[in-house]
Design a binder for these strands. Structure first.
Lengths: 216, 216
DNA sequence: AAACAGGGTGAAAAGATTTTCACTTTATTG
DNA sequence: CAATAAAGTGAAAATCTTTTCACCCTGTTT
């Protein structure tokens, strides 16, 4: 059982964790000090040493940002308590669409409210809109889209859907006509593309059921 | 579309990626050099600069381990321990803006990734865009917006912000000029409104930092 | 042939970061 | 009360890291 943390130590610990989440790397002593209002790096140094001896932190001596949380091995899927965590697929996965989930670029937690109607959250992935072709529908390049995986013959005409074409994840309205898949953009500056269902250049991922965007 | 990587650049990129997985932080130039057999940090430096201009990497100048994979948006480390749950404010709260949180119409879980830069998730609430005044910026009526609460004098000019005006939650760009608050829509069909800072008809909630939309 | 991009070497300069030192404050405790 | 632990201040020293400079080598392009 780990030793109890003092209020101040807990603040430091919490800051480090939240910093690591957003920055993908540990903070420097100075950054921690700024966040907690400590002017001397030595003040921070002592806090960290305390956290280390209490077993909350591991430090790598003399290394810049040489911090690591002692218990950060958690499986992202293990802690679903209501909110499922979905794979964010990486753009470099386009060469092997079958292995979308194999090379995740990250994970995002999504409120179940946005997964309404989905039988199994495991059938969903998150991607990022690759262009501005759906600007007219309020979807911008870079937006995170929650996609329920589905083969093309399960998509309804006009349904907002996601496709892997070339290196890009395209969001389009899907139509099936004349034995061909039609990907219709909402913007006139983008042209409608059509593919035969068997065309390997176009991989259908599924329907888009939600959208998230970070604004800063 | 991203430029192709050379063999060497790809090796560097892959090393950085695998290093980050195991170490939970980016490597130093020296560490990269050791892994690839490059004796001069300058050799590594040039590789990184190439990766940056080709869009595979982002660098933070002069910062130790100031690397970040461009294709690595959400948290790859899963330090998760439950995403914060925020209050969704009800539209009927407009009569008593001070008590926004008192009458929640619901709760939503938000991944910490979308709260970047927010010190305390408790300072955030969620509202729903009351009109289409920001259609031009890809925000539609009914969208869920995550708002970091802030008084008007802490908002920067041009910052996407949220206001309670009448019965509606308005999303607008905020400008302060001539001693008045200007709420500027992105759509011509809506007119810019201005208020004196003391005007009780306009209640400033804060800045909009993220957006979520259910699409079915 | 000259010009250029990709990759490197070595060394040095410029910054960033971590550690150490000496001393202070506040609250708690035997 | 004197002793101790937690938390800090300020400054300086010791290390790390990133950046810049000057040059070298090898293909490919012009």
């Amino acid at each position: 059982m780990k030793a109890r943390l003092t209020e101040r130590q807990n603040q430091a610990y919490e800051f480090i964790r939240s910093y690591m989440r957003t920055h993908r790397k540990p903070p420097t002593l100075k950054e921690i000090g700024q966040a907690l209002g400590i002017r001397s790096t030595n003040g921070v140094f002592k806090l960290l040493r305390a956290l280390e001896t209490k077993g909350y932190l591991q430090r790598e001596p003399n290394a810049a940002r040489g911090l690591r949380l002692a218990d950060d091995e958690a499986d992202p899927f293990a802690l679903d308590e209501g909110a499922p965590t979905l794979v964010v697929v990486s753009r470099t996965a386009s060469d092997q669409p079958e292995q979308l989930r194999r090379r995740p670029s990250g994970y995002l937690t999504v409120d179940p409210y946005f997964l309404r109607g989905v039988m199994d959250p495991e059938t969903c992935v998150i991607g990022r809109a690759g262009d501005d072709g759906m600007n007219g529908d309020g979807i911008r390049k870079g937006d995170f889209v929650v996609i329920e995986e589905a083969p093309w013959n399960q998509l309804r005409n006009g349904e907002l859907s996601a496709f892997l074409v070339g290196e890009e994840l395209l969001i389009r309205r899907f139509y099936f006509a004349n034995d061909r898949l039609h990907l219709r953009p909402a913007d006139r500056t983008y042209t409608e593309e059509t593919f035969s269902p068997a065309d390997p250049r176009c991989h259908v991922i599924g329907r888009v059921i939600a959208l998230m965007r970070r604004l800063r």
